[in-house]
Design a binder for these strands. Structure first.
Lengths: 208, 208
DNA sequence: TTGCCGACTGAACACGCGTTCAGTAGGGTG
DNA sequence: CACCCTACTGAACGCGTGTTCAGTCGGCAA
């Protein structure tokens, strides 16, 4: 009964269109008129529903937060490491992640809230996994968590360039698999060789 | 005709002011009038010198590219790993790095050029170090390089949030030291405990 | 002198932005 | 019926943007 169809569909579609626009082009580019056009209504109607553009963005934030909340909980319940790659594999969640990435770059209240949330998730997640003996501990857990978080978020923030190098969408299942594998590999096998190695067999097996 | 006579100082100061504004607030916020005001001249003078705002930004790009070129070469000559932390420690270079970070996020030609350059630097750097036996090789060197690049660039892209967590500027010498140390630690000592059974794949077991 | 040219400015233009306002249509309720 | 509330629209306002235009000032050459 709760989620039947009581809401006027227009307001809902406006939020959805705004989220998509913001995720792909940023808040600045998501003008009131463009959002209205995407749904096929007039610009003042958007203000009628949300009071102002700020209200529209706030509604989008709330929607994204609420939707992603369940996904994060689900992800945490599934255990394993807390990488965002699982989210990128989901087409719907990918839009939300790109939305959050935009918010992170623009230094507004929402971005700050999101980052603090993600940071706490990483920091506490690492601590918890360390307790269970799954990962080691760190001398500087704060900086380590920041770097680990940046490692995952970085690829999302740099998405256009990463996709250009890989020649494939970051949300592709195959790309996500490569991502997970390479990251796990990086964090499992040290990349720096001990400097005082007597004879290092260096078979350059890299592919051109 | 030659540049023996010093350029009219105004043009030079306009570029410098624009770079600073763009680095800190982005191209959009770097209004022609704001740039002009920062130097103490009128807005049309900016257009007189650069033709258009696009020309102004192009001049800034060129300046940043040229200045940073030497720094990268210097850094490469100094050897060691190619982390951006060394750049962040330099006050003047930090502005340039923030400028590049802005360009990377806005998906324009300059950003693409910059990312390709930084990616090649990372990729080739890793390959070269692998040849010298300093680092190991990777099954997926492309993805590994992307992740390593994102790890460094991520902190710069997320600068406001990182600084909020650390409660210190990212360019602080002490922060840079922590950054270098933690990153080296992450890449030297594996964080995941080796799985009990040999040849255990990633926790995610999904086959298309 | 006269003429020219580059640095420089105040006023103003066209455009897109978020926003406001007056007004219309339609459905429920007294 | 009249009344009100909600969804919705076209026209327009104020503002900031990049840009244009006519014109001033000062140094240099003929």
């Amino acid at each position: 009964m709760s989620s039947a169809t009581p809401l006027p569909a227009t307001r809902d579609r406006l939020v959805q269109a705004a989220i998509e626009l913001i995720a792909n082009e940023g808040v600045q580019a998501a003008t009131v008129r463009r959002v209205a056009d995407a749904v096929g209504v007039s610009a003042p109607l958007v203000l009628h529903h949300f009071g102002s553009k700020e209200g529209l963005v706030a509604a989008c934030d709330e929607r994204v937060l609420g939707t992603m909340e369940g996904m994060l909980a689900e992800m945490a319940a599934a255990g394993a490491d807390a990488g965002f790659q699982y989210l990128m594999a989901d087409e719907q969640a990918a839009v939300l992640l790109l939305y959050v990435a935009r918010a992170l770059h623009e230094d507004n209240a929402t971005g700050r809230q999101w980052f603090d949330r993600l940071y706490a998730l990483t920091r506490n997640g690492m601590a918890e996994m360390a307790e269970r003996g799954m990962v080691r501990t760190f001398d500087d857990p704060v900086m380590a968590s920041l770097i680990l978080l940046a490692m995952d978020l970085g690829l999302v923030l740099l998405r256009p360039h990463v996709e250009r190098i890989l020649d494939a969408p970051l949300t592709d299942r195959s790309v996500v698999t490569r991502w997970i594998t390479a990251e796990f590999d990086l964090l499992t096998t040290p990349i720096f060789r001990p400097p005082a190695s007597p004879a290092a067999p260096a078979p350059d097996s890299e592919q051109p």
